[in-house]
């Protein structure tokens, strides 16, 4: 498989008047072609800002890329000027946001919003664009596409709007689609529709997907490989089967255990003690140290390296370092 996106040693810094914090630190992962790559973690773990940094959507200031590289098809994205970036954003890499209700402009019709993406990136005539809009809306299984192009966002339901968002992001046939919690704001039955649609599009068009979510269920339904984020670190990367069956990092283990024990009637659930630390409470060692059930002395003061322990299975934990 060929590498499409390679993020290496990426650190994003929050600069305030008082101090500087590394919100995410030494992020390393690759996304291959035609692959669905999942990023899973709790709120505040840095999964969204990592995604935003790929297409340079970080709000600078206060957020800065401190170091690291983001390589997309051999091109270094961190050095691009905003003009060059604009050519890639929405064209080769596009994004779906969490809340379809707020991501669309209430003052423009659905058709106009779809056309805008093409006006910027292609040289099609107006007529051709109109046809392509309807064609794309049909691809994302929107009924009555011919009428819906003239509707405004408030006239559609959440599930429909998310389909429109997907249509906007797919209309230029991107190589990479970043989906930031695409189904979190939706009901379960609608979520099932959207996930089904995204799986279909991935197979039909060969688009790679980065799926950002906090829901392990969504990951297992859609992804090929997963990175688990905790407190701004990648703590584990593996293919999706191994994350659930052979999780290595104590955090992943706890997460999988607590979710999968749900549904057994009234049995006490497995829990990870404590709470997620905020960025200003991070220690200098492993960021999971306070909550870890297997902590050792070394964990307190030294961040473990992210290492490959079996083929395609990386983990950031001192536990395995000793064994080797």
């Amino acid at each position: 498989m060929e590498e499409l996106l390679k993020i290496h040693d990426l650190t994003i810094e929050l600069r305030t008047k008082k101090a500087r914090y590394n919100l995410v630190e030494n992020i390393d992962f690759t996304v291959n072609e035609k692959e669905a790559f999942g990023i899973v973690g709790e709120s505040g773990c840095g999964k969204s800002i990592t995604a935003y940094s790929i297409i340079n959507l970080l709000s600078t200031p206060p957020l800065y890329i401190k170091k690291g590289s983001i390589n997309f098809k051999g091109k270094e994205l961190t050095n691009l000027s905003s003009k060059e970036m604009r050519k890639i954003r929405g064209n080769e890499i596009s994004m779906i946001f969490q809340e379809p209700m707020t991501a669309l402009d209430p003052l423009f019709t659905i058709g106009e919003q779809l056309k805008e993406v093409m006006q910027i990136h292609t040289k099609l005539t107006d007529k051709e664009m109109d046809n392509k809009v309807i064609e794309t809306l049909k691809k994302v299984e929107i009924p009555r596409a011919e009428q819906i192009v003239n509707d405004y966002p408030h006239q559609l339901s959440g599930g429909m709007l998310q389909r429109v968002m997907i249509a906007i992001s797919m209309i230029n046939n991107p190589k990479l689609l970043i989906a930031d919690e695409p189904t979190t704001a939706l009901d379960v039955t609608i979520q099932a529709q959207i996930l089904d649609l995204m799986n279909g599009l991935k197979e039909k068009f060969g688009t790679s997907i980065i799926m950002i979510t906090h829901d392990l269920g969504v990951i297992s339904e859609t992804c090929d490989r997963v990175a688990v984020f905790y407190g701004g670190h990648v703590v584990e990367i593996s293919d999706v089967e191994n994350i659930f069956e052979n999780s290595m990092h104590p955090y992943t283990l706890g997460l999988v255990k607590s979710v999968s024990s749900l549904g057994q009637k009234r049995k006490e659930l497995y829990t990870i003690p404590g709470v997620v630390p905020t960025y200003d409470q991070m220690g200098i060692g492993c960021r999971f140290y306070d909550r870890c059930v297997k902590k050792m002395d070394i964990c307190k003061n030294k961040v473990p390296p992210l290492k490959e322990y079996s083929k395609g299975h990386q983990c950031r934990c001192w536990l395995y370092e000793e064994v080797n």
Partner: peptide, 20 residues
């Protein structure tokens, strides 16, 4: 059937409701 399962290998027959 719409609840995402945690078993990645098991592809279940999902009933997908149409519409809202």
């Amino acid at each position: 059937s719409a609840v995402p399962s945690l078993k990645p290998n098991k592809k279940k027959d999902r009933i997908i409701l149409s519409g809202d």
